[in-house]
Design a protein around this nucleic acid. Structure first.
Lengths: 137, 137
DNA sequence: ATGACTGCAAAGACTTTGCATCTTT
DNA sequence: AAAGATGCAAAGTCTTTGCAGTCAT
């Protein structure tokens, strides 16, 4: 039993972390977060498991931010904001894509719509504060 | 005069192509398209000019599809569809993000929203047809 | 001459993959 | 023994960048 757990310890840790955080981490961020508690974790394993989870639909890809893919443990469709200054990916739980848009898209396309993603970009509160606070400091 | 034109010939060609097509090409696609008519064009020049145009806001990035960035000569915000089979990026001119969503996002975020992108994913008409036509053929 | 644009190739960043090893059944 | 998971490092892909050469002013 505990042995089985051990066998999947890394895989489980990766998925757990994704599901526990809202930072929408990259492979490298997952690695950096777990490395201290799992010293023999390798980056390749993180990539392998993330790819697998994504392919299975267990996790979702938020897309590529600054050349780096970001992941989301929450596979329910929802809206994101991406800060162009600090690359933060932030959930916007109060917004959602109007139901009828997906249907409209399917009609217009003549294809099959499987998903959609709405992403706002700009500067997050933190970054605006930092600029105003002390740009020259 | 014609000399000046010559000096910017490649830059102009890159921008013209982006504005003339709706395939939302990658750097490599731009290169492949222009190479026949501009034999001494180099991929580095395409990357350099695309980066510059994007930074200026002269063109827009549609995002990364299959690890490759795709560009759009149309900088007016509009909706896209991305085919997960053939990686085609297709405009959905009849749809648009509700005006009030951007304002809502800004309120909710407490930051500054500069842009937004709505992208549907799935299988385009072509790919569905091909599957039905002769998957095993 | 000076500044701008480019070709070419090297470098860089991110991701995938092959192989040997170790674990679980 | 067979199948699965992983570390490690090499390989792969896409993109950026340094340098020298060319062109326009």
């Amino acid at each position: 039993m505990t042995q089985a757990t051990k066998h999947f310890r890394k895989r489980d840790a990766i998925l757990s972390y994704l599901r526990s955080t809202d930072v929408h981490p990259s492979a490298d961020m997952v690695y950096a977060h777990l490395k201290p508690e799992i010293p023999d974790l390798s980056l390749g394993t993180v990539y392998r498991n993330l790819s697998m989870f994504r392919q299975q639909g267990t996790i979702a890809s938020v897309g590529t931010v600054n050349g780096v893919e970001r992941f989301d443990g929450n596979t329910m469709p929802h809206v994101h904001f991406i800060c162009t200054d600090c690359s933060a990916v932030i959930d916007m739980p109060q917004l959602q894509v109007p139901e009828n848009m997906t249907r409209s898209a399917e009609c217009q396309l003549g294809g099959r719509v499987a998903g959609c993603s709405l992403t706002f970009t700009g500067q997050c509160r933190e970054c605006i504060r930092n600029i105003k606070g002390g740009e020259t400091a």
